[in-house]
Design a protein around this nucleic acid. Sequence first.
DNA 1: CCAAAAGTGTTAGGAGTACACCCATGT
DNA 2: ACATGGGTGTACTCCTAACACTTTTGG
Lengths: 224, 224
Amino acid sequence: MRLSVDLVIFTIIKESLNILLIKRGGEPFKGSHALPGGGVHEDEGIEAAARRELEEETGLKNVFLEQLFTFGEDPKRDPRNRVVSIAYYSLVSHETKPKAGDDAADAFWLPVSELSKIKLAFDHDQIIKTALERLLGKIVYAPIAHELLPREFTLTALKKTYETILGKTLDKGNFFNYVKKRGLVVSVDKKAESEGGRPAALYRFNKRVKDISDFMSHFRSAIC
Amino acid sequence: MRLSVDLVIFTIIKESLNILLIKRGGEPFKGSHALPGGGVHEDEGIEAAARRELEEETGLKNVFLEQLFTFGEDPKRDPRNRVVSIAYYSLVSHETKPKAGDDAADAFWLPVSELSKIKLAFDHDQIIKTALERLLGKIVYAPIAHELLPREFTLTALKKTYETILGKTLDKGNFFNYVKKRGLVVSVDKKAESEGGRPAALYRFNKRVKDISDFMSHFRSAIC
DNA sequence: CCAAAAGTGTTAGGAGTACACCCATGT
DNA sequence: ACATGGGTGTACTCCTAACACTTTTGG
């Protein structure tokens, strides 16, 4: 019985949602596309293993990483022997270039819209599907979209991030009002460079919100 | 490295939320209270292992069971050797008596309000805390409360279930309207026995809702 | 008839939605 | 001056929340 971690690393590139994939350098599935990941070392925590793999692949520390699901239903999902895989998903800002890890021949970003064109190793298509569902479900009530952006961003960039993930357009006025009234962002009194119009104000995420889960009260009003 | 499953089994007894605990029959933590669970067999899926343990403990099949979280951060959480535990939670109707499993000396229901009075083996207090958070978070947008009730129930019983889990009282009229308008229940044209007043109509859960996740659209309106 | 619990109706306030309008900058 | 994207304000609708009121049973 082996225990491994697999990573679904999301980022936004040119207004589209991307996932980090590798080309497998070893058997099985050599040459196939797959999620980055690897075995959990003895005397290593499972999240620690995920963070280690994440850093190997992207060089990033201290980014958003959350346990997704543990896959181990079919004892034969890995042809070699029984492998139970703990999947994590991560949200990163698109600044760092991916590096190929130990057993990966290559690492690259792929838009989720193009996932259907390729075949993935193991049950990694299922893992990605689960990650997308989680991301889509979580973004509507938890303030995590900013994790995909640089530390300072424009409200339009934040709006486009939501639109990309939700797959629908949002109203500008309502979105701006929402995000300000909830205090999710704080202005940094700087302007972005103009892109053909009035330059946008830059904002930073309001860290207070992360700790206090005051969105929960709003969230609960759904039924109660 | 060993892989095990732990179960947090909830039920409602006399308007209070209960968890199934066992008294450990073997070392380590012999005699301590703990969650039911056990090792995953070779050539067995992890959810299959959880369902096997659940049936050993309660005799129940085909009940609500959902993967909760995988705990394996601290390599020394089990003093014997490295154990990674996949926690599941289950919602059952209080009809079956718990049976003691293989390595359990005793099995019994304990109200969550009394959990603070006892000390649990391993990191099972952490697992229960996670399960309570999930249950509380999920009940407000997913139709799962009925899993804790018999197949036919009164609207007041359903309301009390929500109140028990949420820890606050709900408005009768608004709750009844909500649950009917959403089509979460269907009347079965029977009456419950009177308890000092007008007898209540019996309802059954509307299975259609379970499959179609139309509550999702309502859910998303939170931000979009 | 009265108490107790079931069940319905009414109304005020607030959140979500659509959309019109003004602002600042580059060309 | 005008095109382009940034940003604000307003009116309408629908849901939620609070609560009063009616109905059906047992004693």
